[in-house]
Write a protein that binds this DNA or RNA. Structure first.
Length: 365
DNA sequence: AAAACGGGGAC
DNA sequence: GTCCCAGTTTT
């Protein structure tokens, strides 16, 4: 099995893996569909978080054909809570390409896979190696970290040139007859052994590891500081009239595109209700004679690069009040709204305010 | 080359 | 609080 001229890193890694491999459902198959789905889900997502979504999506969409013929909104609803929603959009787009242009036949090579939307260098390498045995190394956060430490590489892993450099090294290390196993192994090694806070004392590779031998484990890999997050202020107005809610789909190039929400006024600082009414005169007319109740707001919602400060009010509009010119907002029944994808911020807002009776105790989650 | 894109878990 | 995760796309 094992080539005698493997690099010590490679032989040590494979040996470690044979004792410590994680038990993961997508490792029991060579079905490109299941592997592709798992890899999209796992982009920037921990296994534990993605696992339930993987099982559910495979159940709802057993084949690429089921996915391609489905309505995108159904996929979004199932993707709800997983984040990075453009993944769902690209997954759906790629499914349609595979079914409508490729006759339902999956690509079999890295070069073909990477042309599909949502499939970049990492995912193409993962699918090509796991499903088809192609000798392409996966290069993700784990690989950057492991190779930077073991070989003492100081290239900033967020720099443009880093991928080329680490891919080139990984390509030398990956065994031609065990590409898939090497790639699986390096993922588990990065997750279990050489994690961000590594377990060097039990590591079989430590004697040859540059970072460990030079006490630089905490300095490697080198990674540029992240940009600081922006503060945003979301003021939601939950308008209800005749058992219908005023909602819209977010479509801008912004967070949560494709998800649904209530009437939103964004401000650049915290505003109280009177300020908001003053600056949005038309709102005041809608609130004439309406019952306005402040809602319990979720705590500040933290994203990678934004802090969303949220306030909300529940507005019961009298049936006789004309409520016009609200595009792109539309009136919808709560049970239909439940079927649409929503941000976790909105889900928290809803669950925190069940006492208002807006959703008749049915939690849209 | 840099920024945008979610949510959650580990420390 | 900070870091960062089986990254990709857009600017």
């Amino acid at each position: 099995m094992q080539s005698t001229h493997d690099h010590p890193f490679t032989s040590g890694l494979i040996s470690w893996y044979r004792q410590h491999a994680r038990e993961l459902p997508w490792r029991h198959t060579q079905d490109p569909y299941a592997i592709w789905l798992s890899e999209i889900i796992l982009q920037q997502t921990r296994v534990a978080q993605g696992l339930p979504y993987y099982r559910k999506l495979l159940e709802v969409f057993p084949t690429v054909k089921d996915l391609a013929k489905s309505d995108e909104s159904v996929l979004f609803r199932h993707w709800q809570g997983l984040g990075y929603y453009s993944r769902a959009r690209n997954l759906h787009k790629a499914a349609k390409i595979i079914v409508n242009q490729f006759g339902g036949k999956f690509p079999t090579t890295y070069d073909e896979w990477i042309k599909l939307p949502g499939v970049g260098p990492y995912t193409a390498a993962a699918i090509a190696s796991f499903a088809f045995g192609e000798v392409k190394p996966v290069v993700d956060g784990n690989v950057f970290r492991i190779l930077a430490r073991y070989f003492g590489i100081r290239t900033d892993i967020l720099h443009n040139s880093a991928r080329k450099e680490f891919t080139s090294l990984a390509q030398e290390l990956i065994p031609k007859d065990q590409a898939a196993e090497f790639n699986q192994a390096i993922m588990d090694f990065g997750s279990i052994q050489c994690s961000p806070a590594p377990n060097c004392s039990s590591c079989p590779l430590s004697t040859a590891c540059y970072a460990f031998q030079n006490k630089q484990v905490n300095q490697l890999p080198v990674k540029q500081k992240k940009t600081k997050q922006r503060d945003r202020y979301f003021n939601y107005f939950i308008f209800e009239q005749g058992n219908k809610l005023l909602v819209r789909e977010r479509k801008a190039k912004d967070i949560w595109s494709g998800l649904w929400e209530f009437y939103l006024i964004e401000s650049d600082q915290k505003e109280d209700l009177s300020d908001l009414l003053e600056k949005n005169g038309f709102l005041a007319t809608y609130l004439q004679g309406a019952l306005v109740q402040p809602m319990i707001s979720p705590k500040v919602h933290i994203l990678s690069h934004q802090k969303i400060h949220c306030q909300a009010w529940y507005i019961q509009v009298p049936d006789n009040l004309e409520f016009s010119k609200i595009a792109p907002y539309q009136w919808i029944q709560p049970e239909d709204f439940e079927k649409l994808g929503k941000s976790v911020l909105l889900l928290n807002l809803i669950t925190d305010n069940l006492h208002l009776g807006i959703f008749n105790d049915s939690v849209p989650r």
